[in-house]
Design a protein around this nucleic acid. Structure first.
Lengths: 213, 213
DNA sequence: TCTGCAGTGTGACTAAAATCACCAACATTG
DNA sequence: CAATGTTGGTGATTTTAGTCACACTGCAGA
């Protein structure tokens, strides 16, 4: 019974859901595996399911003209992709990219269920609203940083967020990746990182940054 | 009967709503007036109602440290404030500012109604979802511009959007206002506008820009 | 082991934007 | 109409970030 696996994820991550809601989800969700680098969503793609991450980490980003991956936020176990809910409901196409940066498992919930779930289950409705709210806030944060902060502050904030989101101070990042995430150039990042190392905020090695604060 | 006024607005702007939904809204919404410059929402404020604009225009912006009003988008008749829905539902505080830039009237819908409306009325539910979707997209657009575009492109886009949103090519803006909206300095805007005038995209007068394309 | 490439360091230069300084035009108000 | 404040124009300068060029260093694969 492969749905035992689904049921277990739902039980663990959504303790607040009513038993009958859990049952509906279990019976209708399919579990999908994504390897590192796999895309869950791409610009222009039409969504047919709402996506809920149950394992791993997914990076949401806006793609630049030269392939930059302007970082917005991560989705983690228990998070749903707000855009997959929105686009799914109205059959709209997505405006962003979502890529697995770890081995990831996600529940795919057919969009046809959305109306019924929203109507019948207050806990689901709250979950959806909360998803919108947190993602909206993340976007506002992104706007704040990019609109009002200089590069050094943005970098410091970026590293802090990485450490927090990935729950580790051992960051496996190249200067190039960071530059792409912040939409700047590698040299700028190298220089700023050096300053941060000199002031004791980080330690650097090849492909690796240790966040010390 | 002051609710006749409310009923009329709802009838005109929300033809898709079921009669009983319209009735509930009519009986529970209060109409509020805002003069130019009045705030509908402020950072840190706790929302107690969902706000639907029925007349006028409201500017949503992020406030900078020195009082800049970093422009995000306008709300117009028929639009609801996505944040007032989100914050209202969870009693969260708002992260942005909303200011009337025209004489504005708005329906205030008590948050206690939200759960019931979402559950009982599919048209309401769709309206809410659509509100989230369009505002989310607006934010993505803002991020796109600020992350990837240079000042001249941002300015051109800004003027275009003003003309489109306010349905007029006669823009009553000072260089200072524009600079504040784009979080740059007045001199930069003056110079770029001059270039745009020279290339025939706009015509300038004091406190006034005519968008020619 | 050697080779090549991805990752990093750094100086020099360029470009974009912010800041400073100051002036002129216009509007409002007493 | 004089005084004052707001708006806009413009040159000079500074700051920040982006670009170019090139060197160095590990690591992985032939």
């Amino acid at each position: 019974m492969k749905n035992m696996v689904v049921a277990e994820y739902i039980d663990r991550l959504f303790t607040q859901f009513e038993p009958s809601l859990k049952e509906i989800l279990t019976n209708n969700a399919t579990l999908r595996d994504f390897k590192i680098g796999d895309m869950l969503m791409q610009t222009g793609q039409n969504m047919r399911s709402t996506v809920i991450i149950v394992e791993g980490t997914v990076k949401l980003y806006r793609e630049g003209e030269d392939g930059q991956e302007f970082f917005m936020y991560y989705l983690q176990p228990g998070n749903a992709c707000a855009l997959s809910m929105i686009c799914a409901t109205k059959q709209q196409t997505s405006q962003v990219m979502a890529k697995a940066i770890q081995q990831t498992k996600a529940l795919m919930i057919p969009i046809v269920l959305m109306d019924q779930l929203m109507r019948d289950y207050k806990t689901w409705y709250y979950f959806v609203i909360e998803t919108y709210r947190t993602r909206f806030e993340e976007l506002l944060f992104v706007i704040d940083n990019i609109a009002f902060k200089a590069m050094d502050e943005r970098l410091a904030f970026y590293l802090k967020k990485q450490a927090a989101d990935l729950s580790t101070k051992q960051l496996h990042l190249t200067h190039n990746q960071i530059a792409s995430d912040l939409n700047t150039s590698r040299e700028v990042i190298s220089r700023l990182l050096k300053k941060m190392e000199q002031s004791g905020q980080i330690k650097m090695q090849r492909n690796y940054i240790e966040y010390l604060i």
